[in-house]
Design a protein around this nucleic acid. Structure first.
Lengths: 204, 204
DNA sequence: TCCCGGTTTAACCATCCGGTTAATCTTTTT
DNA sequence: AAAAAGATTAACCGGATGGTTAAACCGGGA
């Protein structure tokens, strides 16, 4: 039963820690609260993950994977650029719709330790160069307007991520805190963002 | 000397608190650290601002004013839409260039208390309706493409704010942590963002 | 059955931290 | 110059918090 039991509690801990950390951040979270949430003793947390810091880093890595989806195939495929960008935007916003709290969490905790952040990014295999190269080729081929490819990438990411990160503010500003209306707005953005971006860069 | 002294220490406290809070957030900041930073006794903090919470709220309000510039005139002016949007983008990115840490701070602490956030927004006179109306009129007049005006506004804000909020990540991704290069990138965005947006929505 | 390794817990510890208090120092008022 | 009012400090307090320890528990093998 050893294996099973261990996996079970470890998973319970990870789930509880994720819930609490995402909501309250590293500083705002209490080991006791995580333990309660997992239905175990506080000492058991330290038995599995020696320190709060280590537990947090495990969660951060786990969560980080979610917000950097595997887009390599998309880049390497030979679909036309508008298809590539379109499906990326759609898929990415879908991921965020399923994990709407992740952008705020990542942005919140990003500043804590740049070295750790860099190591996580490297270990996750984030390779912006491929995408930048792809954009540059399209520009040379004359399918999209010439610009700094990093600008293009920041713009696409910003369109997808920002409305999730700034949710509370935008929700008050535009929807009087009507959660459903805001969610609807986000869903529609899969199309509007696509249109907005392609309308700007596509050369017909 | 009463007035002068009081103003002086109060200002010292506010400055110190702003520095520390912006860097470490509410939970990560220590009253002692703020006191040290201001060169005063910890008890004096409580003398001026009874609790940590109250001190934090004072800072949050102060900082919030900065990121919501007075754009009413711009909206009410009868410049053509491309001028209005252009100068807004330019001015806004300029504000953020002078306070590059503010977006991350606001996004970080936004979730803490939605009610307080709403009250701050109201007290700052954030009136998105004017801007939305303005956009709608332009769409009816046929000067810009028809779309949900809220999308347009989120897009403009996202373009300006996101690259500041996600600075550490983007800086590693695109510039190998070269701060100057990244700052240069942000400066250039005043033009590229303008172009990108107008290119998408303007009807010629 | 008894022991042994890994798991889980209750109790504990040292430190940190927000906040208070009472005394001191400084400025203003009379 | 004395007293009153205000600003500032050192010392302290109680509770919270991350982490430790030693004992109990539990399943599997001898």
């Amino acid at each position: 039963m050893n294996e099973l039991k261990k996996d079970n509690t470890e998973e319970k801990i990870l789930n509880a820690a994720q819930t609490v950390f995402i909501k309250k951040g590293l500083d705002g979270s209490r080991m006791q609260e995580i333990a309660d949430h997992a239905g175990i003793n506080k000492a058991l947390l330290h038995y599995y993950f020696r320190t709060k810091q280590k537990l947090f880093e495990a969660i951060f890595k786990k969560v980080f994977k979610h917000v950097f989806p595997k887009i390599e195939m998309l880049v390497l495929s030979d679909l036309p650029i508008e298809e590539k960008l379109g499906t990326f935007i759609e898929k990415y916003i879908d991921v965020l719709l399923k994990n709407p709290y992740l952008p705020a969490f990542i942005l919140k905790e990003m500043n804590r330790d740049p070295v750790f952040l860099a190591s996580v990014m490297k270990s996750q295999g984030v390779h912006p160069e491929h995408i930048l190269k792809m954009f540059e080729k399209e520009m040379e081929a004359g399918t999209i307007s010439k610009m700094d490819p990093r600008d293009l990438m920041v713009n696409v990411l910003g369109f997808c991520i920002f409305p999730f990160a700034a949710k509370p503010l935008l929700n008050i500003m535009f929807f009087e805190n009507d959660k459903k209306a805001y969610n609807n707005f986000l869903k529609k953005r899969k199309e509007t963002v696509k249109k907005f971006i392609l309308n700007s860069i596509l050369i017909r």
